[in-house]
């Protein structure tokens, strides 16, 4: 058994699990945070994307033990004080989802992408960056639109803050 301690969405949590327990299982089953989804279970679809130490990763391809000591953000940790995160709001406004299964991974990917590119995104970049996330409903069109809208809003907000 592994004892795993990490900071998840700002809260320190610990738990025991098998050494072979995947991080996504730990998040869903031990912590009860079921917003992070398991889609393909073969590291392709990106429904399980979370942030580990500030970077987007596929939590179905990492052991919980490997993540011991890390800082994790899941989809549940994005909205602050009941207000949707700008990326979540943009997905809603642009109808960037249909069934919603891939959405948590898409949103976590988008937040990471916008941070890395400091909000400077174009359509081709967004589409290339979505390489690791599969959506079977939308044809991606409104997802791309939502991410571009969020990037524009967030970089506008950053300029305003500066």
């Amino acid at each position: 058994m592994a004892k795993v301690t990490m900071t998840v969405n700002g809260r320190q949590v610990s738990g025991h699990c098998d050494d072979r327990t995947l991080l996504v299982q730990f998040i869903r089953e031990n912590l009860g945070l079921t917003g992070t989804h398991v889609g393909c279970d073969t590291s392709q679809c990106g429904a399980c994307v979370i942030h580990m130490d500030g970077k987007s990763v596929k939590s179905c391809s990492i052991l919980a033990a490997q993540a011991d000591g890390s800082t994790i953000t899941t989809i549940e940790g994005l909205a602050a004080d009941g207000e949707l995160h700008p990326v979540q709001a943009a997905f809603k406004a642009n109808h960037g989802l249909q069934c919603g299964f891939c959405t948590p991974g898409m949103v976590m990917t988008a937040v990471d992408m916008i941070r890395r590119h400091q909000g400077q995104l174009d359509e081709a970049t967004v589409r290339a960056e979505l390489e690791g996330n599969i959506c079977r409903c939308t044809g991606y069109h409104n997802i791309v639109k939502a991410i571009l809208a969020a990037a524009a809003e967030m970089s506008g907000a950053r300029v305003a803050a500066e």
Binding site: S43, M52, V57, I62, T109, G132
Partner: peptide, 9 residues
């Protein structure tokens, strides 16, 4: 290589 999430690990 792979996708952004794979490249982070």
């Amino acid at each position: 290589i792979g996708d952004p999430h794979v490249r982070h690990m």
